[in-house]
Write a protein that binds this DNA or RNA. Structure first.
Length: 354
DNA sequence: TACACGTGGGC
DNA sequence: TGCCCAAGTGT
């Protein structure tokens, strides 16, 4: 009988998917792919990765770009702090590490947006270090292999110890890829395909007869629902947008000014009042554009969009870093959240300035 | 430690 | 339809 790493890696070599970053040697591209893949499925990442590499082929091209531009290439991928952090991290590598990605775990791990997973992944894939990765796939596979009965977050230490014993020092990156790929293709969340699994001989969960019971499922509380109103404020054939503050939801993206409405009967009134309070100028709703629904990770929103006219137009003539007036084609230059694009789609059907 | 942080796909 | 979740990190 072969040992665990041999069985796993042999399975991987026969069954691995062809992916744009698979087999890549450039540490920058490996790092980028790992950041894009955080909490995001492979199929979703592929087109974003390709577009990004075309515009930003190396680390200095990222470091030299504006935040607006990198966010535009991240637009639609979600979790935008990943992009802001990666942008900053690239600048740190250029300025503090002579453009060379640090190949020591302690140094690389300090970069913004690099946590335990990404550090272990990049160090093993790009630099051949024997650092085991523990992501969602590995946690699930390991939970079943050792029949771990406690909540999965408590298993990291146990899992890491076992993985450090198993990881192949000759091919640590391939070992890491292999166990993640096994989780992704065979050891599925709801219905593990144990018949296809190369390591059932080692799996206590399989021998128990119900591997799908691991890891233990946790129940979550329902998420809140908000009602919001957004204004499309027209003035001289352009409409008003503002930049969201960094380190907030959708930080760094641009948006139509919007407010949460608590009195659902007088949304327009509240919009007018709060826009004046937040932005400092008076608007007049002209007509309703439509309503869109959107779900974030921790709340849902119903957003009502209104065409508005600027009443006192001697304000905010000139764009600043925080706000601007753009024509409809400006949408393709500024990064916007998905929920605003949903409104733009309705506007498009209504021929914009109507 | 638990929660904030996006989006699209699966069932 | 509505809920769960996916190659996690920062606070």
């Amino acid at each position: 009988m072969s040992d665990f790493p041999t069985l796993l890696i042999n399975w991987y070599r026969k069954n691995k998917r062809l992916l744009p970053w698979r087999g890549e040697k450039d540490p920058y591209k490996i790092w980028l792919s790992e950041v894009m893949l955080q909490q995001t499925q492979v199929e979703t990442v592929i087109p974003f990765y390709k577009n990004w590499i075309q515009r930003f082929p190396d680390i200095s091209s990222v470091a030299e770009a504006s935040q607006d531009e990198v966010l535009k290439y991240w637009e639609g991928l979600g979790y935008y702090s990943r992009c802001r952090n990666f942008h900053r991290a690239c600048q740190i590598v250029i300025n503090n590490y002579d453009g060379k990605i640090p190949n020591q775990l302690e140094d690389f791990r300090k970069l913004p947006g690099v946590g335990d997973y990404t550090a272990a992944a990049v160090l093993s894939f790009a630099f051949g270090k024997s650092t085991p990765v523990i992501d969602g796939n590995v946690s699930r596979v390991m939970s079943r292999l050792v029949k771990f009965s406690e909540p999965v977050e408590k298993g990291r230490t146990v899992f890491r110890k076992q993985l450090e014993e198993w990881i192949d020092p000759e091919n640590p990156g391939e070992f890491n890829q292999a166990i993640m790929e096994l989780g992704s293709l065979v050891c599925l969340r709801n219905q593990p395909h144990c018949i296809k699994c190369p390591v059932t001989d080692f799996c206590v969960g399989f021998k128990s007869g119900s591997p799908e019971k691991y890891p233990r499922k946790v129940s979550r509380s329902p998420i809140p629902h908000k009602t919001m109103a957004a204004a499309v404020i027209w003035n001289n054939s352009k409409f008003f947008i503002q930049k969201r503050p960094s380190n907030s939801l959708l930080g760094g993206l641009w948006e139509l000014p919007g407010v949460e409405v608590t009195n659902k009967k007088s949304k327009e009134h509240q919009l007018v009042k709060d826009i004046k309070k937040c932005i400092g100028f008076e608007i007049q709703p002209v007509n309703k554009i439509g309503t869109v629904q959107h779900a974030y990770s921790h709340f849902k929103v119903t957003l009502h969009g209104y065409h508005c006219r600027l009443i006192n137009n001697n304000l905010l003539k000139n764009p600043t870093k925080k706000h601007g007036w753009i024509s409809s084609d400006g949408i393709s230059h500024y990064p916007f959240p998905r929920v605003n694009h949903k409104l733009f789609e309705i506007l498009q059907e209504q021929n914009w300035e109507q």
